[in-house]
Write a protein that binds this DNA or RNA. Sequence first.
DNA 1: TCTGGGGTCCTAGGACCC
DNA 2: TCTGGGGTCCTAGGACCC
Length: 423
Amino acid sequence: MSAPVALIDCNNYYVSCERAFDASLCGVPVIVLSNNDGCAIARSAEAKALGIRMGEPVHLIRDKIQKHGIRVMSSNYALYGDIQRRVVAAIEPFARDFEIYSIDETFVDFAGFEHLDLVAHSRAMREQVKQWTTIPTCVGIAPTKTLAKLANAAAKKNPIFDGVADLRSEEIRRWVLDQFEVGDVWGIGRATTEKLAALEIKTAGQLRDMALKHSRGVGGVVLERVVAELRGVPSSVIETIEPQRKGMAVTWSFGSPITDIDMLMGAVTQYAMRAGEKLRQHGLVAGRLTVFFHTNRHKQDRPQYSATRTLSLQPMTNDGLTLLAYARRGIESAWREGYGITKAGVMLEDLMEADRRPRTLFEEDNERRSRLMVAMDEVNGRFGKFAIVPASQGFKRQWKARSDAKSPNYTTRIAEVPAVKAR
DNA sequence: TCTGGGGTCCTAGGACCC
DNA sequence: TCTGGGGTCCTAGGACCC
C-alpha cells in the first residue's frame, strides 16, 4: 500500500471568507459572483439548496434572488488570498510535506504518519483551521490523489463521514466509487464523460474496472493515469516545490461591445500595464506576447471576428511600456472595422526569472526605465491602481469591470481593517 | 444555455535536419 | 526524378481544472 495522501478542501470557500468578517451573512443564502459580476461562482449551502447552480449567470436568477433574499457579493480576491495564507499556516504543523493545489485545496502527504490514527489527526487539523480562520473544511484520505479528491467529495456529501472520509480500506472505497458518476472524477470532463457513456461506463467504479490498455486508447495517457489512480496505484506525486509558472494572462469581457479601435487600445493599454506589473511582482521577464480580441461567440446571428497576434519579445522584458508598444502593434495589424468586440486580452509566455535572462549584444542600458517601473508600481500600490497610467489608457474606462458589492479589504488594507468598539 | 478569468498538460501536424 | 527512416522542435488546439 502506498503512503496515504489527504486532501483538505475548504467548504464554499469564498462564501466562508465573506462570513468570517460579516456575521449577517451566516445562516442565510449567499452567493459570490465572478469578475464583472457575471455569474455565481460560490454558493453557500442555503443557496445550493435553493437550486442555484455553479456558474449560473446572475441576470437569469434575479427573481430568485429577490424572492429568497439571497445575499449577493462581488468577489474579493485580496481577501481570499490572504485568508488562504492563514489556512495553510494552520495545516502546516500536521505533516512534513504538502502541496497547495488551489486557493481552497491543499494536498497533505501523510508518509511517515501511518502509525497515527489519521482520521483523528485529520479532525485535529480541521479544528485548527477552523479555530485560526473560522473556515470550515472537509478532509479525504486515500492512497492516491485522485482517490483523495473523491474521498473529500464523499466527506462533503455524506454526513456519515462527519467531515473526514478515509478510503484506505478496499471495502469503503468500493462502496464510495459506486456512488459517484464518472464525471465526478478528477480529470474527467464533459468530452470524456460522453466518450465513456458510449462505452456504458457511467460510474467511478466502472471506470476503475476499465482495462488499462483500453483506457489509453480512449483517452490517452491522461485517462490511463486516472484509471490507475482509481485502483490505488499512484501516477502523480505531491508537488512540494512550486513550479516555475509558464505563462500569465490578463483578459477581460466588455459589458457592451467595443466598435472603436481607440476604445480597444485603451483597454489593452490597461491589460499590458497590468501584465507587466504581474511579471515584476513575480520577478520574471517574458519572451513572447500575444494579444487577442473577438466578438461574442454566443451571438452567432451577429458578424463574427476573432484575431490573435503573437510577437516575440527581444530582448526579454518586463517593462510595461515596451509590452504596451508590442500589444498596440498587434492590435493595429489585426483590427477590422465593423465588429462589436466583447472580449480581449494580453498573454505572456516563455517566462524566465529576470536575473537569468539572456542579454542581447546591443541591449540599451534601461536602468532608468526599470526605475520608472518600480516607481509606478509603488505609486499605484499606495494611491490606488490607476494613479499613474499611460495616456493611451484614456480617462473614460468604459470597459471598467463591474464590482458592485465587494466587501472591504479587511486584512490587506490598513484603512479597511474592521474596528472593534468597546462599550 | 446563460456565461468568468487564469492556468496546465497532452496531442497532432508541420518544418527542418541527418 | 524518385526514393527512406527517424529524430527534434515548435505551434495550435483540445480538454480539463479551480
